[in-house]
Design a protein around this nucleic acid. Structure first.
Length: 122
DNA sequence: AACATGGCTGCTT
DNA sequence: CAAGCAGCCATGT
């Protein structure tokens, strides 16, 4: 056998690891977007990849997948979907103010915007 | 190998 | 602020 591992030759698993790592770094009570996460993980425009991968996370994962929203600060998951409600509940539990399935990125967005003042840190 | 599908984004109407 | 459109990129048929 030349190769018996399940690792992809192009490093897909490594990229996924990078995503998990950045994801795990998101502080509680803060949120980020798929695109932002993708970029920070070195995926460039792999925003959709992030979404796909997050959906593949096991139910018992300890990763804060719920802190990932779309660029508009909205929960991309359908409201009537169990995962969607779960996400909403988790965010609320962390003190994030969600109005109409939407969150203020200026306030809770992570990392901090360079020229925007937030009050979320206090 | 071609085509369809996403837990997306940014720009323009 | 909502809706439409065109890129982007891995996965599944």
């Amino acid at each position: 056998m030349i190769e018996r591992s399940g690792a992809a030759p192009d490093g897909t698993d490594l990229r996924r690891e990078a995503v998990w790592q950045v994801l795990a770094a998101i502080p509680p009570g803060r949120v980020t977007s798929y695109g932002q996460l993708a970029r920070m993980a070195g995926l460039g425009r792999g925003a959709r990849l992030v979404g796909r991968w997050l959906g593949q996370l096991p139910d018992d994962t300890r990763l804060p997948w719920h802190r990932v929203l779309n660029s508009q600060g909205q929960l991309s998951l359908p409201a009537d979907h169990p995962a969607g409600r779960e996400q909403l509940q988790r965010l609320l539990a962390e003190g994030v103010v969600v109005r109409n399935r939407r969150v203020s990125m200026a306030r809770y967005g992570w990392p901090d915007h360079p020229h925007s003042i937030e009050t979320a840190s206090e």
